[in-house]
Each structure stands twice: as structure tokens, then as C-alpha cells.
Design a protein around this nucleic acid. Structure first.
Length: 634
DNA sequence: GCCGTTTTCGGCCCGACTGTTTTCAGTCG
């Protein structure tokens, strides 16, 4: 974990502890907000001047002092004092759904409960049910929540969550009266893992019967374990997560062989799914609202307030029209919505009316998308970035793929034709190098034969389709930074993708030196999955990213955004750092199986989360431009 | 604790759902 991440996590912990001590809400929120701001920084805390840190939105005098203290001593006096007051186990109790700060504090101060074991005891002997505002049903909910946690309820990798969302959407869209339905939440923002699904279904007019029918269809679909809540327009349920299908398991070999990450939770087996039914006039507002992030929405609603408007999940309203309506009680089917200020059936209208540029979902993290918050010394032009963000349809080449020569399932020609069918002008065949024995890496003599075979396919398909098939290799970056083939051999390859595959637990300084050597190598074009992390399984390398980026810029090397949902490496924050440093990106699918081309959407989402524009991504270039760039290293 | 084209003090986003209530607090997103 980087110093930024460690400091931020301590602030988060302090927020929870203050909450349990009964501290005022806004003070608690200030800690959380500062923690999030630090997490989103693209600069190392240690390299920032005090004035730069104070310029970060959410970081004031006190937090800046704490950062200095943390950097100097590795800890903080305030943090230690809080730790001494609040038992460790209470923080786990706070993580149980349905248990908030008020309840945990009450059971701590009046029942002496200090951990999960004590909580279970208090439920069994009936003392918990005797707390104010507690009863048998509330206790049962906590029991169920504990059981769900023990079953394994972590965050699900994006690729698996998307597959489940599409199943739910199919059921909802099939209901009579449903005009459209979309997934919102962190899935729509393209986050690398998803905690729950938010499904928004749209009907023409609010109708309680219709809404109930849609929610019944969802809550009775196969795999539903438990219905958590069911109101007039919203239902929540727990859905079993089936093991990945064979196609979904077409993960890279190394991913399958990966050792479990020390912090890995038991694998996720249930996913919470919320289904909401809204009228057409509200659909855009609801989609916006539940796409989040929470922090982005807080800012957007505050913006609405400055214009005397109220923004909520039903639309954008004049205070004078919404407030009296609201005072009469919650919205219901029998009480029609008041007219909003704008037609909120599309979310773009809301941004437009508030005078904010439309923010693509992937950028809605309150990391500067409103043009105010500083995340580093470098300012990217928000409006331009939002318009020029790289899209799936911009990608014209694949530069990282495997055939049956190493661990892929396609022949060279099948691979090239699959790439052509997706509209690509170029594919690079980059089978593994000799040290990746698990993946049947090629010894030098096999590589020479393989290159010849690739060039024959190129001659054929270039004549037939105008397709370019490049002879490349995914060359191991060995533990000391040497490459896995001689320079004489590398020189003959059209494309060299250099990737770390083994020794992924080395310390930061060693990893930095290792990757720098690869970047500085004059025959290397792209660094593949630079950290080697596997989501939820392996932390991977933690090199000094700023040093790598400076070197990549200097040596004109592109860093990969590996699109496989188990990798997404570079990750979103690293992409943002690369864009601020002006470093080129290669968004690739690391194709082993024909289905892997479909993972491109996840790599694109990750790149967009890092504010990557089309011009920074070498796969968007036309053939001549890309080929000329590759030849500059030969 | 942070912040300022309504403020250096007094605010800080907004609503649904649930369970315990007897009008609403707690939790969640």
C-alpha cells in the first residue's frame, strides 16, 4: 500500500472511531471526505508542498498537519488516542449491514459489547432486543446479515457483475410496460469491483400494480436467496453468484495459478441487487442519482442549491414546488409528481440546466470533474477530457494476443480474422517467452519458426483483407529487470510487450528498478500489465509510479491497460497519473480465447476512469501512424 | 473539520424504507 493509501485508510478508521464515540456528524464526515481526497491524489504526499496539500478540496489546516506528522513518524497521536478508546472489534460490528453508529454505540456503552462474538451473545441472551428502538425483527435482520457476511459477501469483479446485471436486466425488460431498464451504480461507473447492483426500470406512468409486477418478476428469478426489502417502488434482494462459466474462466494462466492474496475474503457467493421502478419523466434523474458516486452527487446537489433548486431522484425542482409536495409525505403512485424544472427523462438535461458540462459516468468520482478540486499540480482540461474520452469504437488494433503456440486457443489466422471482424487494421501476435513455462513460453528456436508463420499469415491476409499481422512477443521482465530473450532476437520482432509474470512480491524499490530497466530497454514498445496484480487475489508490484512514468515519457514507451476484468492493470488511478504525465497507453485484451475481445469494454472503462483521451491511446491510431511508431524502435 | 459570488461563523444533500413507535429515529444509498 502506498503512503497515500495508508494515511487515507487511517483517516477512514478515525472517522469510524469518532462516530462510535458519538462525535458530531459533520466532523466525522470531514474525516471521510479528507480520506477520499487523499485516496484520489495522483501525487505522492511526501512530494507535495504544504500549499499544494491545502489546495486539495477537503484538506484543511488540521488534516495537513496530520499528513506531515504521519510522513515524519509513520503514525499520528490523535489516531493512537482514538485506538486506545475504541475496541478494535467494534469497527467490524459497524461493518454489519443494518448496524449503524447509533446502535453499535448503544450496545457498547449499555451492554459492554466490543466485538462480533459479544454481539452474537447479546442476541442470544435477548439483551440486544431490549435496547431502545430494537426488537425481535431488527435482531433477526442482524442475524441474517451476519450469516450473509460469513457466506462471503465481498465486492465482485466488474466482469462477473456485468454478466449478472445483464441477467437481471433481461428479466426486467421482458416485463409488460417496461420501456427501458439500465444498471446504475458503480457498475455503470466502470469500477473494477462492484458491491451491489442498482437496476432502474422505466415505465410510462407511476402505477403501483405495474411496479409491483416488475419487482415480483425480479425477486422471483432463479438464484434469489432472500428478499431484503420490498416497498412501493423498490425491492432489494440477495442473488446467488454462480461460479464463472468456462468462457468466463478464460482468464490468463497466471491468474489461475495465482496464490490467494493475504487480504482476500472468502469468495463472493451472494450479491445484493436493488430494483427500482420509476416513471419516464424521472428516469434520467433516477439513473443519475443512483449512478453516483455519492460524492459526485453531493456536489451536483449543492450546485442545484446555489441556483435555488432541489435535485433528487425524481427530478430537478423549484424549492417552492417540491417542498410543499414533500411535506405531504413521500411520493406514491396515487400522488402524481409535481412538474420538474426540466424534463428529467434523460440525465443530460440535468447537467445542462445546472450549467455543468455533461460528466460521463466513469468520471463521476468527485476527483475534479467539476473543475474545482485539485488532485495534483497538473490540471487536465475537464470539458475537453469529457468530450474526448476514449471509447470502445475508437479502438482499431490489438497489440497483445496469444495463439496455440503458447497458451491461447486460436491459430494465428483465426486470431487475425477475429481481429479483422472487429474492425481492427492490425493485430500483434505476442506469445509468451521462454521463462513462462506454465504458459508454454517459446524457446528462441520456436520463436524464430513462429515469427516465420506469423509473417506468412500476414502476407496472405494483407493481400486478402488489408490486415496487418505483426510478429511480436510478450517477453518476461525477469526479477532483475533483464528481458527473457537476447537483443539480437528482440530486434527481429515487430512488437515487444515486456511484462512481469513472476517475483511479484518483491519490495517497492526492487520492483521500481526492475521495471525501469525494461522501460529503458531500447527495443521495448509496451510494458504489459505493469504491476501484475490480480483483483481480489494478488496485490502485485507497487513500484514508484512517478519514476516509471517519467521514464516511459522519456523513452517513448506505452504502458498497457490490460482489459481482462481480473487484471485491469494499469488501474484507474495509475491511468490518471499517466495522462497527467503525458504517457501513451496501450489498451489491450491479452487475447487467449475469442471471447476475450469482449473484455475491451472493461479496459476502456478503466481508461475512462483515469480520464484517458483518444489521442493518448496508441490502439486508436490509424495503421500508418501506429506502424511508424513501432518502427522507430527498430 | 472544512469552507466562503449569500457566510471568517454558521452552515454542511436528500429521500425511501423499516421497525419501533403513538410521530419518528436509524440506516442506507
Amino acid at each position: 500500500m502506498s503512503a497515500n493509501a495508508r494515511f487515507a485508510s487511517m483517516l477512514h478508521e478515525m472517522a469510524s472511531m469518532l462516530e462510535l464515540l458519538g462525535e458530531q456528524g459533520f466532523r466525522v464526515a470531514a474525516y471521510s471526505k479528507a480520506a477520499r481526497a487523499i485516496e484520489g491524489l495522483t501525487s505522492d504526499l511526501s512530494t507535495m508542498q504544504p500549499a499544494q496539500l491545502l489546495a486539495v478540496d477537503g484538506v484543511g489546516e488540521k488534516m495537513a498537519q496530520r499528513a506531515a506528522e504521519y510522513l515524519a513518524t509513520g503514525t499520528m497521536k490523535d489516531y493512537a488516542q482514538l485506538k486506545a478508546k475504541v475496541p478494535e472489534g467494534l469497527l467490524q460490528c459497524l461493518g454489519v449491514p443494518g448496524l449503524g453508529p447509533k446502535t453499535v454505540r448503544a450496545m457498547w456503552t449499555t451492554l459492554g459489547v466490543t466485538d462480533i462474538a459479544g454481539l452474537k451473545k447479546a442476541m442470544d441472551d435477548g439483551s440486544l432486543a431490549n435496547l431502545p428502538r430494537m426488537g425481535e425483527k431488527a435482531v433477526q435482520k442482524i442475524r441474517d446479515a451476519l450469516a450473509t457476511i460469513e457466506q462471503g459477501q465481498g465486492r465482485l469483479p466488474l466482469g462477473l457483475a456485468v454478466a449478472i446485471a445483464e441477467r437481471v436486466l433481461a428479466v426486467v425488460r421482458a416485463q409488460p410496460g417496461v420501456i427501458r431498464a439500465e444498471a446504475a451504480g458503480s457498475l455503470r461507473r466502470g469500477k473494477e469491483t462492484v458491491g451491489d447492483l442498482d437496476i432502474i426500470a422505466c415505465v410510462e406512468k407511476l402505477d403501483a400494480g405495474l411496479a409491483q409486477a416488475v419487482m415480483r418478476a425480479a425477486t422471483s428469478m432463479p438464484g434469489v436467496q432472500r428478499v431484503l426489502v420490498q416497498g412501493e417502488f423498490k425491492a432489494s434482494m440477495l442473488l446467488s453468484v454462480e461460479p464463472p462459466s468456462p468462457a468466463e474462466q478464460a482468464a490468463p494462466e497466471e491468474a489461475k495459478a495465482a496464490e490467494p492474496h493475504p487480504h482476500q475474503q472468502t469468495s463472493t457467493k451472494v450479491l445484493q441487487v436493488d430494483v427500482r421502478v420509476v416513471p419516464r419523466v424521472s428516469f434520467g434523474a433516477t439513473l443519475q442519482y443512483f449512478t453516483g458516486s455519492k460524492e459526485h452527487n453531493v456536489r451536483l446537489r449543492a450546485l442545484a442549491q446555489t441556483k435555488g433548486l432541489t435535485l433528487n431522484e425524481w427530478g430537478l425542482f423549484l424549492d417552492s414546488t417540491w417542498k410543499p409536495f414533500h411535506e405531504a409525505g413521500p411520493v406514491s403512485a396515487s400522488r402524481p409528481l409535481p412538474d420538474g424544472v426540466v424534463d428529467a427523462s434523460e440525465e443530460g438535461a440535468i447537467y445542462a440546466h445546472l450549467g455543468a458540462p455533461f460528466v460521463p459516468p466513469e468520471m463521476r468520482e468527485d476527483r475534479g470533474e467539476f473543475g474545482s478540486a485539485a488532485t495534483s499540480g497538473v490540471a487536465l482540461d475537464v470539458a475537453h477530457t469529457a468530450r474526448a474520452l476514449v471509447r470502445v469504437e475508437d479502438i482499431r488494433s490489438e497489440l497483445h494476443s496469444h495463439t496455440t503456440a503458447s497458451d491461447g486457443v486460436l491459430s494465428i489466422e483465426q486470431l487475425a480474422r477475429a481481429a479483422h471482424a472487429r474492425g481492427f487494421h492490425t493485430i500483434a501476435v505476442t506469445d509468451h517467452s521462454q521463462s513462462s513455462t506454465i504458459a508454454r513460453g517459446l524457446k528462441p528456436d520456436r520463436l524464430r519458426t513462429h515469427m516465420q508463420a506469423v509473417r506468412e499469415v500476414h502476407a496472405k491476409l494483407h493481400a486478402e483483407l488489408g490486415m496487418t499481422v505483426l510478429a511480436g512477443s510478450e517477453v518476461d521482465i525477469l526479477a532483475d529487470g533483464n528481458l527473457d530473450y537476447s537483443d539480437e532476437l528482440l530486434q527481429q520482432l515487430d512488437v515487444v510487450v515486456a511484462s512481469p509474470h513472476a517475483s511479484l512480491k518483491q519490495d517497492a524499490a526492487t520492483a521500481t528498478k526492475r521495471l525501469l530497466r525494461a522501460i529503458e530497454h531500447p527495443l521495448v514498445h509496451i510494458i504489459g500489465h505493469p504491476t501484475g496484480r490480480i483483483i481480489n487475489q494478488r496485490a502485485g508490484l507497487e513500484p514508484a509510479m512517478h519514476e516509471l512514468l517519467a521514464a516511459a515519457k522519456q523513452h517513448n514507451v506505452a504502458l498497457e491497460v490490460n482489459s481482462h476484468w481480473s487484471r485491469l492493470d494499469l488501474r484507474d488511478l495509475h491511468v490518471r497519473m499517466a495522462c497527467e504525465a503525458g504517457v501513451l497507453l496501450a489498451i489491450d485484451c491479452d487475447v487467449h480465447h475469442p471471447d476475450d475481445f469482449a473484455n475491451l469494454r472493461f479496459g476502456i472503462a478503466t481508461a475512462r476512469r483515469g480520464w484517458a483521451t483518444k489521442d493518448m491511446v496508441i490502439n486508436t491510431w490509424d495503421g500508418p501512424t501506429l506502424h511508424a511508431w513501432l518502427r522507430r524502435k527498430r
